[in-house]
Write a protein that binds this DNA or RNA. Structure first.
Lengths: 216, 216, 216, 216
DNA sequence: GATGAATGAGATTTCATTCAT
DNA sequence: TATGAATGAAATCTCATTCAT
């Protein structure tokens, strides 16, 4: 509860994170910690996760943890940065979503991308959505990434003449996140066709009302 | 080696909660604590909430808190029980949801009921949805209540010939909860017509695909 | 409502006691705590002893205490286990106690052993005898150890034709414990010949009635 | 932990204990509290007994407790005073204890008196013997009472030409207390002839070595 | 006389973070 | 680089005692 973020005091001892050059062994240890952290975050949630849980899962020691990260938040920050990158890419790659078959396919692709990202970064996204994070910077990352996707959705929909106000898109994002959460937390394969198809259908209907006539 | 007997004595002091008869003053204090707890849970989330925050908000002392509740979890339990009651009532009262105007109205009524319950018990529901609770009993309550609503939704929909598999209904529930969360956490009036109308429309479309032709 | 899992997490931090490998420094600290605990237990009694008293006496911190023991009871448990071991060894080693000089010597040896064990584990034994312990396991240890000695006494006496019912042996054990307590709590050297001789005489007489004629 | 003994502050509210005239109802309530206290002390020991346990057992309230006693210690004090009175009377009434049949009978009478007193005041005596009491005054009472009996024993024995040093008598007292404790805590009837006979025999032998020839 | 309610000082326990090896 | 050990601030919980009705 002391150390706080970098502002409060000079980073004592071994300066953590990307500040330092890491050799092979170091990179491996750091990776173990990140993997372990994701596992623990997934099990307990970010807030409830203790540094001790993480180092135990990573089969390393407390000392080592602070060799690579300034604190729990710093660890989350590195994961969040990566995650935000993926989400932003997703937003950028989104094509026009129209009521027709092509629009359905486009939506499907986007949703699949989201589910895959969730599969890897779910706990981080959860931390964002559930407001578990205190760090301003990290929150900004999440907010921006989601805003990017939501904005993109809105733009692509309006381009198709669909009235898509903020509330509707907000509801969509909310549903997406929770839906992904359930799938992942239950170990459902997000690449399974049926799952993806159902999700796409519900969302597409939510926006365009009429069911897509696939054969037309 | 003998007399001592015992083993983990009962909490003592004043056995908490409904075990004891309470007079007017006691009931008032207990209510103050519950209200304060809801407020703090809403602000910080259940996990992050400190007993200290709650007693401060209730303008009372630590000792008093433990006079009425065994601990934070016990307090949540009493709130959760009430909340589960409301949700179950909601599930029981749900009428048939058809594609027509009457079905739309029925759905609207149900959704309004949910939003109102969320308005009062949001933090408790969040604690359930976000898996913040350790207590088995409390989790069961939440699980059962949501299952009841989901099941009811499924039944009413199937009665209308709507293919409503588990996944679809699950997605609906997820969206409902998050949507309600956003509304409430931003102080939106859940009784405002526009809000409720939007939500009902999205959901109804999600199920029946075609927009309701209100005038027909 | 899902992921959260868990239920009363394991103590975490460093799992206490023999579960973990300890290095030299750790073993030393643990020993310091045990020694300090015996000192504090002796001064205040087990019940009245505060963890705070113990860590102060061991010149360490609260956090450190819980690194090695789950709580005060757990600490007592490790001490009790050792003590019970010694008492059981004492019971096993006891030879036949007859009215003659050899029997007197045997009794003397046994009593000396008891006093020496008491010298080291007095506070633990007191905790047993005075029923201060809530832990079932610990109580069992004490009960069994005392039963072993009492049974052994009974057997060795009966082998010598001495009528030794349960009540008599019980009274003997009671006296032994209290007697030892007084000696130790007043700093009397339990190896002093006079003390040991008096005790042996009283006990031997209590059983055989006739004074031993040393010269015969 | 505040109130302390009378020295620290003026006895606020209703002055407790014998200071006040009590009517019939008051005397009854006070008696209920004393009885309940003895019960709780017997079960948990004086130290571990909580005021709450006592009032619960007496089916009364915290407020009422402090109407009659300044605190837990004060309650013990009144019980201890009575008990000390009985023990002192016992010491004063003790006749000469000789090796013969008459001496045996005298010893028996004394021991029976002790057991009966223990039957009623056991928990108080335990509190003394186990050093659970912080109050100087109360401790003095106990110390003096036991000293009186021990001294009396010593005098009566020496009058019979028996070498009875302090250690021997001390051991005897210790045994007496523990023995009585076992009997009482197991609900044995201390007036049962067999029990009393065994105890008297062991003690008499312990002092005089030779068994009493009852028929001679 | 009696009682439920309230209090707060103090005890226990947890855990992020730093340190010495 | 790695690690076990140590720390202390903060959180939880208990209980003797006082107060208002």
């Amino acid at each position: 509860m002391t150390g706080g973020s970098a502002s409060k005091r000079p980073p004592a001892g071994g300066t953590p994170t990307e500040q330092r050059e890491l050799r092979a062994q170091g990179r491996r240890t750091m990776q173990r910690l990140r993997t372990a952290a994701m596992k623990v975050f997934a099990e307990r949630g970010y807030q409830a996760a203790r540094v001790d849980d993480i180092v135990r899962a990573a089969r390393t020691s407390h000392g080592t943890f602070y060799l690579y990260f300034a604190n729990k938040e710093d660890l989350l920050r590195t994961l969040a940065t990566e995650c935000a990158g993926e989400l932003n890419a997703l937003a950028a790659a989104m094509g026009q979503i129209r009521p027709d078959v092509a629009g359905y396919a486009e939506l499907r692709t986007t949703l699949e991308g989201f589910l895959r990202t969730y599969e890897r970064y779910g706990p981080v996204i959860r931390a964002w959505m559930e407001g578990q994070v205190d760090d301003r910077h990290v929150n900004r990352l999440g907010l921006d990434a989601f805003l990017a996707i939501a904005t993109s959705f809105g733009r692509q929909l309006r381009a198709s003449g669909c009235r898509s106000d903020e509330v509707t898109v907000g509801a969509l994002m909310a549903m997406l996140e929770r839906f992904a959460y359930y799938l992942v937390s239950r170990g459902v394969d997000v690449r399974a066709t049926a799952t993806l198809e159902t999700l796409t259908t519900v969302v597409h209907r939510g926006f365009f009302g009429a069911p897509v006539v696939l054969a037309a």
